[in-house]
Design a protein around this nucleic acid. Structure first.
Lengths: 249, 249
DNA sequence: CTTCTCTAGGTACAGCGTACGTAGAAGCTC
DNA sequence: GAGCTTCTACGTACGCTGTACCTAGAGAAG
């Protein structure tokens, strides 16, 4: 907000355009095309694809408005006709990625199996798009494809007998776990040097005597767990937590 | 990386300084003070406190190197003597916040009660520092205070009989849940307009017939749940998942 | 045809992280 | 104490970011 906008006393506004009544903040509420004027040279899908391509290969930070516009062969500011804010570009990217789910038309009937499949698909998607988990964790994000996923999750968990609200909470817990796991994998894989330092630091901390339980945990810990095994192990716990009967108290 | 550094052919280096052998990337491995030279005008603690003050009141983005330096009465670049990268400033902030835990010297013996207390403290901290959850979710972050927290968690969960590695996984799940919850609270509280649009959009999506289970969930959902109740409800499930015996298969 | 709305894209600005270099203070060795 | 060394403070400058604003011109609606 730069210096509160001087508000010029004379504002002729000869065009008398009625100040389009508050464009919605949510990009999914803005029509992609109104039908007037020249037809756009790009689409939301192509823009999202370009941005995802950059982010996949060079990291999320590389997917700047300039870079994405250049990848499309467009001028930087032209992008703002499609995407009023950078935030919205991220929304488009996330929803485009959510289109990668292969959701069966109907639940199989085995809740645990269906949820396990969903989690594995999600992890695979996050491994393909390393920038995604951070984004999902940061913002709710509700595009058409994300809604399709949500709908499927609700269908799958219908047999639990839980109400809609509780199943939404369960989904948040479920997604949160997968995101977090993927995110951790990414940061761990990112820097070998970082990881080596971390181990050294933790060892030193354990040796200091200040953190006895940490030291003991280190001592009793076996070899580093296989990531996929660790994922399934905790996933099973999460699913159990979801399936467990509501035990108040 | 600007044009790969011309590499001047003549590099006399009369001082013959031995190129300090790779300063560690992890800030906790760098000594705060080496003893030589003039004594610093600031400390890591005061820098973290200044940054936290700005971030608490104006948001994380406002806590730029320039702003923090100005708040300390220092020149911008002076900050880089204490904090070699912006990342490290974030590390300092997170660890300073982790100092707010009030951890009892010994576990009470009631695992569920201890974990519940820990979660409530964490949520309270995150409510005081709205920028914190996003940061915790984005990076592991291991300062002395975070280690104290970890040690306490390990102590509290010792009676479960789980090994060190499994208890670390449990902690990740536990922390992840609290972070995510706090994060969601923040984004929800941030924009009334955003929330209103979201509800409208979801309602419209439900009415479209494309998402039948979502529609049904909406229909059967009661009044919006009290946040604290929802937190405790899911927290209980998470704790149960942690305490459940390891059931392979 | 006229009118209006839309799109494309250039220019410009404030703010970001930070590389680099200089000046001088404070500790160590003699 | 002298002198060397190593640290701190900080100004300047660069490349990058998101994006406000403006001008042309394309093309549908009346």
């Amino acid at each position: 907000m730069p210096s509160s906008k001087p508000e010029p006393s004379i504002r002729p506004d000869p065009t008398n355009r009625p100040t389009p009544p508050e464009a919605p903040e949510l990009i999914w509420l803005r029509p992609e095309r109104t039908g007037r004027g020249p037809r756009p040279a790009h689409s939301r899908d192509s823009i999202a694809a370009a941005a995802i391509g950059i982010a996949d290969t060079e990291g999320l930070d590389a997917a700047s408005m300039r870079r994405v516009a250049a990848a499309l062969g467009a001028g930087t500011m032209s992008l703002y006709n499609y995407v009023p804010k950078k935030e919205h570009l991220l929304d488009l990217m996330l929803d485009a990625v959510a289109a990668e789910y292969r959701l069966p038309p109907e639940p199989s009937g085995d809740v645990r199996a269906d949820l396990t499949d969903l989690a594995h698909q999600q992890l695979a998607i996050f491994r393909r798009h390393p920038w995604a988990p951070a984004l999902v964790l940061a913002r709710p994000g509700i595009g058409p494809n994300a809604l399709r996923y949500t709908d499927h999750f609700l269908a799958v968990t219908a047999p639990t007998g839980l109400g809609g609200g509780l199943r939404m909470e369960a989904m948040a817990l479920f997604n949160g776990f997968v995101c977090q796991f993927a995110q951790y994998e990414q940061t761990a894989a990112a820097g070998a040097k970082w990881q080596a330092e971390m181990v050294g630091y933790l060892g030193q901390a354990a040796a200091s005597g200040e953190y006895p339980h940490l030291a003991q945990a280190f001592a009793t810990a076996g070899p580093p767990a296989d990531p996929d095994q660790a994922f399934d192990r905790t996933l099973n716990r999460v699913i159990s937590a979801i399936l467990a009967p509501t035990e108040e108290g």
